[in-house]
Amino acid sequence: MDAQVATHEHAHPGPALYLKVAVILFVMTALEVLAFEVSHRSGWPMHGLVQPLLNEILIILSAAKFALVAMFYMHLKQDSKIFSGLLVFPLIIAAVVILALLLLFAYLRAQHPGM
């Protein structure tokens, strides 16, 4: 950890990159809403494909957006690894907590229908 040199002295990437990221974020958000609409309208193209996979598609898109903002706007890509750790470790715990609670309650409700 001590060997870490001050890495935040690096020049931050410029506005051109930021704009690219913004466009990608916007497109991904549009894709999220599109997936939602497609899955809710049985007549639309790809409905049969998207409908059962909606949650998975949304999780992947959302995670990708999260990662883009963290890496480029929050500068984790070129900043110290310590900062990345300070975000990623809590995120792992957070994901485990959410998943565990959902599993526990799904399991409980499956065992005791009507609860």
Partner: peptide, 18 residues
């Protein structure tokens, strides 16, 4: 320590898996 909290709750009847 973050993965064992439910051992305080065995008596709630979480089921054999949990």
């Amino acid at each position: 320590g973050f993965g064992v909290w439910s051992h305080h709750m065995f008596s709630t009847g979480m089921g054999p898996m949990a």
